[in-house]
Amino acid sequence: MAHGHYDLKKAKNGQFHFNLKAGNGEIILSSEMYASKASAENGIASVQANSPNEQAYEIKPSKDGQHYFVLKAKNHQVIGVSEMYHATSDAKKGVLSVIKNGPSTDIRDLTN
């Protein structure tokens, strides 16, 4: 069975970000942009630590009627955002996928 992993990337503007991918390769959580690679790595560590906690998630409606969720650290800072889902039930499935895959220690450094 395939497990989730993190892709750590460098953007064209020189900042860093990461995506958490499920075992099937689908992006299930994306980070904000970070000024340094070390900060992005700290963000991954925060997702690893906070993702198992179901209370750390908040499902929200988007302006166009879709739904997404955010994962928050203990200090209430958003550390990851999901894709858009058509239904709240689909967003809840996405949360369960992040709970399952978030603790992964498989970090793929794609910054070179």
Rank of each mutant, 00 (worst) to 15 (best):
residue 3 H to G: 03
residue 3 H to N: 08
residue 4 G to K: 02
residue 4 G to R: 03
residue 5 H to V: 06
residue 5 H to I: 00
residue 6 Y to V: 03
residue 7 D to H: 14
residue 7 D to Y: 00
residue 10 K to Y: 09
residue 12 K to F: 05
residue 12 K to L: 05
residue 13 N to R: 10
residue 14 G to S: 07
residue 15 Q to T: 15
residue 15 Q to A: 10
residue 17 H to T: 11
residue 17 H to L: 13
residue 18 F to H: 09
residue 18 F to A: 02
residue 19 N to M: 03
residue 22 A to S: 12
residue 23 G to Y: 07
residue 24 N to K: 02
residue 25 G to E: 01
residue 25 G to W: 01
residue 26 E to C: 00
residue 27 I to D: 11
residue 28 I to W: 09
residue 28 I to H: 06
residue 28 I to G: 11
residue 28 I to K: 10
residue 28 I to D: 05
residue 29 L to W: 09
residue 30 S to N: 10
residue 32 E to I: 10
residue 35 A to R: 08
residue 37 K to A: 01
residue 37 K to E: 03
residue 38 A to D: 08
residue 38 A to V: 06
residue 39 S to P: 07
residue 42 N to S: 12
residue 42 N to R: 13
residue 43 G to A: 06
residue 43 G to K: 07
residue 44 I to P: 08
residue 45 A to H: 12
residue 46 S to M: 09
residue 46 S to D: 13
residue 47 V to E: 04
residue 48 Q to G: 11
residue 49 A to W: 04
residue 49 A to I: 01
residue 50 N to A: 14
residue 50 N to K: 11
residue 51 S to K: 01
residue 52 P to K: 05
residue 53 N to I: 01
residue 54 E to A: 15
residue 56 A to P: 08
residue 56 A to G: 10
residue 57 Y to I: 10
residue 58 E to L: 06
residue 59 I to P: 08
residue 59 I to L: 11
residue 60 K to Y: 07
residue 61 P to K: 13
residue 61 P to G: 11
residue 62 S to H: 12
residue 64 D to Q: 15
residue 65 G to V: 11
residue 65 G to S: 06
residue 66 Q to P: 09
residue 66 Q to C: 04
residue 68 Y to T: 04
residue 69 F to Q: 10
residue 70 V to L: 08
residue 71 L to K: 07
residue 71 L to F: 08
residue 72 K to Y: 02
residue 72 K to E: 03
residue 73 A to D: 07
residue 74 K to C: 08
residue 75 N to V: 05
residue 75 N to F: 11
residue 76 H to E: 11
residue 76 H to Q: 12
residue 77 Q to K: 14
residue 77 Q to T: 05
residue 78 V to W: 02
residue 79 I to R: 05
residue 80 G to A: 06
residue 81 V to T: 15
residue 82 S to R: 00
residue 82 S to Y: 03
residue 83 E to C: 09
residue 83 E to L: 06
residue 84 M to P: 08
residue 85 Y to E: 06
residue 85 Y to A: 09
residue 85 Y to F: 13
residue 86 H to T: 13
residue 87 A to R: 14
residue 87 A to Y: 15
residue 88 T to K: 13
residue 88 T to H: 14
residue 88 T to C: 03
residue 88 T to R: 13
residue 89 S to T: 15
residue 89 S to F: 10
residue 89 S to C: 02
residue 91 A to C: 02
residue 91 A to N: 00
residue 92 K to S: 07
residue 92 K to I: 13
residue 94 G to I: 05
residue 94 G to M: 01
residue 95 V to Q: 04
residue 96 L to S: 13
residue 98 V to N: 01
residue 99 I to H: 12
residue 100 K to F: 10
residue 101 N to K: 03
residue 102 G to Y: 06
residue 102 G to F: 03
residue 102 G to T: 07
residue 105 T to E: 10
residue 105 T to P: 00
residue 108 R to H: 03
residue 108 R to N: 04
residue 108 R to A: 00
residue 109 D to S: 07
residue 109 D to K: 07
residue 110 L to K: 14
residue 111 T to I: 02
residue 111 T to D: 04
residue 111 T to R: 06
residue 111 T to Y: 03
residue 111 T to S: 02
residue 112 N to Y: 15
